Amino acid sequence: MSEAKIVRAGPDDAGELLTLQYAAFLSEARVYERLDLPPLKQTFDELRSELGDHPTWKAVVGTRIVGSIRVHREEDVLHVGRIMVAPDQQGRGIGSRLLAAVEDDVPAGVERLSLFTGFLSTGNLRLYERVGYREVGRRPGPTGVMLVYLEKTLATPG
């Protein structure tokens, strides 16, 4: 199988990204025994609108989207979210490459990257710590699942 190519995604990718999102986050829903996770409730129209407003990258193998990541900026923080890899493609470095793509395109003035994941998502936590994120807190999310918040401080240009 060929290596995934990381490229920007847009509103026209909404249908395939929504299918990927449901597949990726359904595995998370099983871990937490909850089907009410926000990514599983997002609609096509909501996602399409979000893709128009937030920079998004996709990992593509052949013609199939196998991973994705979205960001939005608030002042000097770039919030990284909806990091997802197709269940049959996990463990192949796609998540790491998506995170690297975000870091390669950080806008001027951004000092930190921020993200969160569920406390039982040990694979996610290992990945984020391996690429330099550090835990900064925990608190329940909107569904009551305990979320782990992590940040990565960016090196300032010298």
Rank of each mutant, 00 (worst) to 15 (best):
G91L: 10
D88V: 02
A101F: 05
L78I: 08
P87S: 11
V85C: 09
D88M: 01
E75N: 11
I94F: 08
P87V: 10
R73E: 09
A100R: 15
Q90N: 06
R92W: 04
G91V: 09
Q90K: 13
V85A: 10
H72A: 01
V80M: 05
D76F: 04
M84P: 01
M84K: 07
V77A: 03
V80Y: 01
A100M: 09
L78W: 08
I83G: 12
A101H: 08
L99M: 15
S96R: 15
A86D: 15
L99T: 02
S96P: 00
V106S: 03
V85G: 07
I83T: 11
Q89E: 15
H79A: 06
I94P: 05
H79R: 12
R73A: 12
Q89V: 00
D104Q: 14
L98R: 06
E75K: 13
L98P: 04
R92M: 12
H72Y: 14
R73H: 01
L99R: 03
Q89M: 14
G93E: 10
G95F: 04
A100L: 13
D104W: 01
R97P: 02
G93A: 07
E75T: 06
R97V: 04
V106W: 02
Q89W: 15
R92T: 11
E74F: 02
V85P: 06
A86S: 15
R97T: 09
A86H: 15
G81W: 04
L78S: 08
H72V: 00
V102R: 08
R73P: 05
G93Q: 06
G91S: 10
A101P: 01
V77Q: 03
A100T: 13
H79S: 10
G81H: 07
E75A: 14
M84F: 06
V106M: 04
G95V: 07
E75L: 11
A101Y: 08
R97S: 14
A100Y: 00
I83N: 05
R82Y: 02
A108F: 00
A86P: 01
S96Q: 13
A100D: 13
R73G: 04
R82M: 12
A100I: 00
D104P: 00
M84E: 13
P107H: 06
I94M: 09
V85R: 07
R97N: 09
A108I: 05
Q89T: 00
R82L: 13
P87T: 11
P87W: 11
P107R: 09
D105Q: 14
V85M: 09
V80K: 01
V106A: 05
Q90G: 05
E75Y: 03
V102E: 03
D88I: 01
L99F: 11
D88S: 12
L98G: 06
V85I: 10
G95M: 08
G91C: 11
R92Q: 15
D105A: 15
A101D: 05
P87G: 11
H79I: 08
L99W: 04
G91N: 10
V85T: 15
V77I: 15
R92F: 10
M84I: 03
I83R: 00
E75F: 03
A86G: 04
P107I: 05
L78P: 11
E103Q: 13
V106E: 01
G93T: 07
D105S: 15
H72K: 13
P107G: 09
G95L: 07
E103M: 12
P87L: 10
D105N: 15
E103C: 05
P107Y: 05
D88A: 11
D76V: 10
D88T: 10
A100G: 02
L99S: 02
A108R: 12
V106C: 04
H79E: 07
L78C: 09
G91F: 08
